[in-house]
Amino acid sequence: MNSKVKASDLSLIDSVINEYKDVDGSLITILQKTQGIYGFLPADVLSYIAIKTGIPPAKIFGVATFYTQFRFEAVGKYFIMLCQGTACHVNGSEIIEKTIFEELGIRDGETTKDGLFTLKTVACLGCCSLSPVMMINEETYGSLTSQKIRDIIKELKEKAEEVNADV
């Protein structure tokens, strides 16, 4: 997508770098704040952090790729986090993942061509009693079935179309 090629506004991150560059062991915190600002970790911002902090780029990429929280591409308007915890597995999360693929054609880590949906499977959302569970942006959806997924996706698609029509 465009955001990958487009140059990022590096000034957004200056205050974070200034706050943490002299605090030992703050690399993960810096990366978390970077993702908070840009929505993901743009490559040019990571290079900028390396120059400003003196931490080698290889180390920054090494740390960033180690942790599941960090992502390197922009995500869709609706960020689906599908829980793959044990309770969700026992209660059929695999079927839910399959249904999402059937409906949207995306697998773990992928974004739909229209930029609406990104799917990310996560280890455990900690709402095991509502399993199978997913979160879309801030909202939690529990006790999922294939039908429920289809309804939710349809509803979100319609909502996005309405917004487009209004514009």
Binding site: D24, G25, I28, L31, V63, F66, Y67
Partner: peptide, 20 residues
């Protein structure tokens, strides 16, 4: 930042220090 292995105490310490 999301790594199961950080439940191991020495891995957790590495992570606290900003490392993998």
């Amino acid at each position: 930042a999301g790594a199961f292995v950080c439940g191991e105490e020495t891995a957790l310490i590495e992570s606290l220090e900003g490392q993998r």
